[in-house]
Amino acid sequence: MDRSSDNLPAAGDTALSLRDVYKTYVVGTDEVHALRGVSLDIRRNEYVAIMGPSGSGKSTLMNVIGCLDVPTSGTYSLEGQMVANLDEYELADIRNQQIGFVFQTFNLIPRANIFHNVELPLIYAGVPRSQRRERVERAIERVGLANRVKHKPNELSGGQRQRVAIARALVGEPSIILADEPTGNLDSKTGDEIMTLLDELHRAGQTIILVTHEDYIAEHAHRVIRLKDGVIESDAPTAGRAV
């Protein structure tokens, strides 16, 4: 497992690093090779878009990067920490502290109000109540929803819900924000607003990984990684609106 670890770049400015990552699923009697030797490094404060047609393995890659799944083989280090071989509890801690998820379908808890939704990662991190309040309010303010704190998700528009999701991703001050088709369920105007918000976060120093199949969304990033059939087809910088 560790054979390639000495090839990894120094942890200094690297947010995450994958080497020869394979992911194989067994479906019935068939083996599905979702990832076939993916290697990539993402530096701190990079703004990366991962693109690819469906079935290209981009969801699997996102799950591996998000520590929702572990590679079948290969190494993955996040902020200098090797992620392969971690158990369920350790993975939960990493997701909680290093990663902020933004999903296509927002994935807010419907019964909980906005404040509580944003508060959740801090609760699972064991942050005492006295410190939570301020951090939650700051995160909600950053996405511009300070006047909606007591509302339930179903009382908000799609764009507002995605802002709440972004606030929830931000509140734990993660190393990376992992946005999976963040504008997929939004109209283009609202989508633009969300992208503008992500651009702002990037300018403030946040590392952002964007999974999308829309070119105009990918254009916000500095760098586009294209996947096809489980391997990286291309990895190139973009003109990047956000630069």
Binding site: G66, Y89, R95, N96, I109, P110, L120, R168, G172
Partner: peptide, 16 residues
């Protein structure tokens, strides 16, 4: 089920 997924994604452990 979905709520459990969300909670786990943002760091809830099995015992929570």
């Amino acid at each position: 089920t979905r709520e459990i997924g969300i909670r786990k994604a943002i760091g809830a452990k099995p015992h929570s």
